[in-house]
Design a protein around this nucleic acid. Structure first.
Lengths: 213, 213
DNA sequence: TTGCCCTCTGTGACTTTATCACTGAAGCAA
DNA sequence: TTGCTTCAGTGATAAAGTCACAGAGGGCAA
């Protein structure tokens, strides 16, 4: 049964109706939930797993905009749902994900009848705007070596020691070219902070923050 | 009296209440409507003029995120309003602006009682997310000379022939350094596409698109 | 096992952009 | 005029993006 904190905002009656109307689906890694241009079928609630949202520019380059995990709402879908426009980005499952979709009719009803539901939706929107503003700042003003180290460090603190990712994919994460990633990683390897192998990056000695001082 | 398309979404009774409760204010160019860290006092409706929203990163650099004009809603404020967090960006008046502020209590009531009002708010959110996603792509993948020319061209098509702006300000528009803007403008002057003077840029012969081909 | 092929990685050469440091010009006010 | 402040121009250098290509790794079919 669907378990998502936004359901907690509903009173018993609405929650029951909602649980009756939605069904949860499971998606394997690599599955594309929606791609650019597609139309929106409802508001996806992420119950678990990890989904990345990325866009591909006119230049042909891609960049990861943000990730969604357990208890997240796919805020991006709301705009498409309300205006009928197609998605501008695509969503790809990273870790096997569980998703429930709230159909438009039900969404409208929940927005109408629950102030707490509205609040949760608005909060989600606010957070997403914040995320994107921070990303703009990051992309515009931060050095690529710092951004790469921060990205790796974030994985390291999640307990991951060996990452399975290609330089190309890492380039999309950071919005840069594969060659740039390769060169920066090689430099990190020279400093003994990582060990490289085809499709793998082993984190051996990343130092937070101070490596660029 | 306040004139804003979102008021059209309200029925007569709610509109009357709203008009009773809000008052419009005028702000001169340069006026700061809110700055980073400040808390939100209500949802601003832009009735006229032009307001730019920009943020300053940890790096100390600024970048213009988007602009608001007549009939816009300051979507950014909603998140702050609902969560109580401070603003992450600042809003500065460019052309003398007229603004009405919907206090939180009234906003909650309108969200509760008008489906059309909700729709308008959601649409506004959706558009803003789109804007920011496009900006990320722009900043990450487009060349600075193209972005500068596009920026100037947009002004040219608005009928402006002489822009009053410094290279520093133009740098903030594009999220780059003043020197970069100076050099690129100098190159455009060599190609007879602009004439430069202290604090002014005269657009003499900008060619759309093909200059970089 | 061998050979083939496709993907991934490494790297040189060059362009574009960012940063730093400094110079000089334009406007303003005492 | 002198002095001050802001704005613009530019050389030197570092970082990042682009292009082109070489070679390594790994899977798979013969």
């Amino acid at each position: 049964m669907a378990k998502h904190s936004i359901l907690e905002t509903l009173n018993d009656s609405l929650r029951k109706d909602t649980l009756d109307e939605i069904s949860t689906m499971r998606f394997p890694p690599g599955q594309v939930l929606f791609s650019a241009g597609e139309h929106c079928r409802g508001l996806p609630l992420v119950l678990g797993g990890s989904i990345k949202v990325q866009m591909t520019g006119v230049s042909g380059h891609g960049i990861v905009l943000y990730r969604m995990g357990a208890d997240d709402i796919c805020t991006l879908s709301i705009g498409c749902l309300m205006t009928g426009r197609g998605y501008r980005a695509e969503a790809v499952v990273e870790e096997a994900a569980e998703v429930a979709i709230i159909p438009k009719g039900l969404f409208d009803r929940l927005m109408d009848q629950s102030a707490d539901f509205r609040l949760a939706i608005m909060e989600s929107y606010g957070r997403r705007l914040d995320d994107l503003m921070l990303l703009v700042e990051e992309v515009a003003f931060h050095r690529m070596d710092e951004r790469l180290e921060e990205w790796l460090l974030a994985r390291a603190t999640q307990g991951q020691r060996v990452l399975t990712i290609t330089h190309q994919e890492l380039g999309v994460e950071l919005g840069t070219a594969r060659e740039v990633v390769s060169r920066l990683l090689k430099e990190l390897e020279r400093r003994q902070q990582v060990k490289l192998a085809r499709g793998k990056i082993e984190l051996t000695g990343l130092v937070s923050g101070l490596t660029t001082a």
